[in-house]
C-alpha cells in the first residue's frame, strides 16, 4: 500500500521555499469594451404591451451604446402616428380604420384584458405608481440616444399615411429589401 505523505523537511534542514501560487493574469486597467452587435427590431404589433417592449429594448440599446434600428411596419406603424392625429388616411376605408382604432403611441390597447380601455388605464396607473417609464417617454429617450425608427413604405401607403402624420425624427420610408439587407449585413433581428 502506498501512502502519499506530505513532504516534511528533516529537522535542521533549510526550509524549502513555498511554491508560489500561479499569479493570475493582471486585469487590464480598462477592460476593452465587448464586441457590439447591431440590433434590428422589427416592430410589427401595435398593442400596448408589445410597443412598450419595443421601446424598452430600443432605449436600452441606445443607452448601452449599441447601434439599433427599428423597422416600423403594419400595426406597429400606428404607434408612430402623432398622438394629436385623430383621423388619418386618404380614402373612406383608411379613415374608417383610424376611427376604429385611434392611432398614436398614447392610445394603444392591450391584446388581453383591454375591457374597453380599462386594462390600459390600470396598467398606466400602475406604471406611474411604480415609476416605470411610459412607451412615449422611452420612445423619446431612444430617439435622443440615436436609435433610428424607419417606417415601412408599403404600410404607409396601405393606411394612406403621409410623413406629416408620423412623429418627428423618423427615417426615410423603406421596404422589405432594406430589412433583409441589414440582416444580411449581420444586424441581429428581433421581431416584436
Amino acid at each position: 500500500m502506498t501512502v502519499t505523505l506530505e513532504r516534511e523537511a528533516p529537522v535542521g534542514a533549510p526550509v524549502a521555499p513555498a511554491t508560489p501560487l500561479p499569479t493570475p493574469e493582471p486585469e487590464p486597467e480598462h477592460a476593452p469594451a465587448a464586441q457590439l452587435h447591431d440590433i434590428l427590431i422589427i416592430s410589427y404589433s401595435g398593442e400596448l404591451e408589445k410597443v412598450w417592449a419595443t421601446m424598452l429594448l430600443a432605449s436600452t440599446a441606445g443607452a448601452m451604446g449599441i447601434k439599433c434600428k427599428v423597422f416600423v411596419t403594419f400595426w406597429g406603424l400606428q404607434a408612430f402616428v402623432k398622438d394629436t392625429k385623430r383621423i388619418t388616411g386618404q380614402n373612406w376605408m383608411q379613415k374608417m380604420l383610424s376611427i376604429m382604432q385611434r392611432p398614436g403611441i398614447s392610445h394603444r390597447k392591450l391584446s388581453k384584458m383591454n375591457f374597453f380601455g380599462m386594462g390600459p388605464w390600470m396598467i398606466g396607473r400602475l406604471a406611474r405608481q411604480y415609476k416605470d417609464a411610459s412607451p412615449k417617454e422611452l420612445l423619446e429617450i431612444a430617439q435622443s440616444m440615436g436609435v433610428e425608427f424607419i417606417p415601412c413604405q408599403m404600410t404607409m401607403e396601405l393606411y394612406g399615411l403621409t410623413r406629416d402624420d408620423l412623429i418627428e425624427g423618423m427615417g426615410e420610408p423603406v421596404g422589405a429589401a432594406t430589412v433583409i439587407g441589414l440582416m444580411n449585413d449581420g444586424w441581429s433581428p428581433l421581431f416584436i
Binding site: L56, S59, T60, G62, A63, M64, G65, Y130, K131, D132, A133, L138, I141, M145
Partner: peptide, 14 residues
C-alpha cells in the same frame, strides 16, 4: 432610487 428598468441605466448613460 425608485426607478425601474431600464431607467437607471438610461439615466446613467445620459
Amino acid at each position: 432610487r425608485g426607478l425601474n428598468c431600464p431607467m437607471p441605466i438610461v439615466k446613467t448613460a445620459i
